[in-house]
Amino acid sequence: MPSTHDFGFTIDTLDWKAWAPVLDLARATPDEIKVLEESHPKAKVSPYYLLLVQEAEVLRQRSKLFNTIMYGPRGASRADRELAATAESRVNGCPYCASVHAQRFVQMKGDRELMLRLLDEGVRTPMPSKQRAIVDYAVKLGATPSAANAEDLAKLRAEGLDDAEILDITLSVAMFANANRLMQTLGEAVRP
């Protein structure tokens, strides 16, 4: 099965293969089952969740945080959060997360061409000014968090984002700084 090192970034749906043993669902405790059910609709068949649930409380807290940041009804639009997650994943070299969140951005925003360019050409590809400001901010936070400054926030505000939206973009980037590292150190994306 070819790894993502062989094919790079894609908007296609990818699978993920764990490099460590995953939980045998038939041996799961009631708490592990509960955590999987709280985490994601497909968690019981996902090698990623079946690996992480072996530390059930950690997965419980990670899933609660992830779901609040990415799906909460406040602040930034879902599309803007997905764009930030895709940019962070592209910079971090995580094809699995980049493909998932590129697909979600397209579902929310309908701009498949932008996502294809972002995945193929990288984070410097041309894009509308609002998306450019979000991607530039995500890239800066991902590469060197201390480099982000008031000027970066001013650029986001100039594109119409308020402070609650900027906080959501920041939270999305931070979540994916963590998520990408988990995905890439515990396994690898593979073509289905």
Rank of each mutant, 00 (worst) to 15 (best):
F7W: 08
R62F: 15
I69M: 05
P95E: 13
T125N: 00
P30T: 07
A79T: 04
A18W: 06
T13K: 02
E121F: 01
F9A: 10
A179I: 14
T185L: 12
D152W: 03
G72Y: 01
K140Q: 06
R181Y: 07
D12Q: 14
E88V: 15
P192A: 09
H5F: 13
G122V: 09
D163Y: 04
K109V: 08
A28D: 03
L171F: 11
S172G: 15
F66A: 12
A158N: 13
A79W: 00
F176R: 03
V35M: 11
Y49M: 07
P192G: 12
I69E: 02
R60G: 09
R90W: 04
M1C: 08
W19P: 00
M183T: 09
R124I: 02
D163I: 07
E113C: 06
A43H: 10
R62W: 14
K64Y: 13
D111V: 14
E55Q: 14
G110T: 13
E165V: 04
L114A: 12
V100N: 14
L161T: 02
S129C: 02
E159V: 01
A98L: 08
P41V: 02
P126E: 11
A79I: 06
K130P: 04
Y96K: 12
P21S: 14
E88G: 02
R124P: 00
L51Q: 09
A179D: 12
D6N: 01
T10L: 06
F176Q: 03
V135N: 08
T10G: 08
K64V: 11
T4D: 15
L25H: 09
R90C: 09
L156K: 07
A56Y: 01
G110C: 12
M127D: 06
P128S: 13
I33N: 09
A133M: 05
L59R: 10
R181T: 12
M70G: 06
W16E: 07
C94S: 14
A85T: 12
N67V: 13
R124F: 01
E55W: 11
I33A: 11
T125W: 00
K44C: 05
L141W: 01
D111W: 03
A43V: 05
E151P: 00
A158L: 00
Y71S: 13
Q184V: 01
T10A: 05
Q61W: 10
K109P: 00
V58L: 13
R191Q: 15
R60F: 07
S129K: 05
A164T: 03
G75R: 00
T125I: 02
D162T: 07
A148C: 11
E82M: 02
M183P: 00
F105D: 09
G72I: 10
P47M: 06
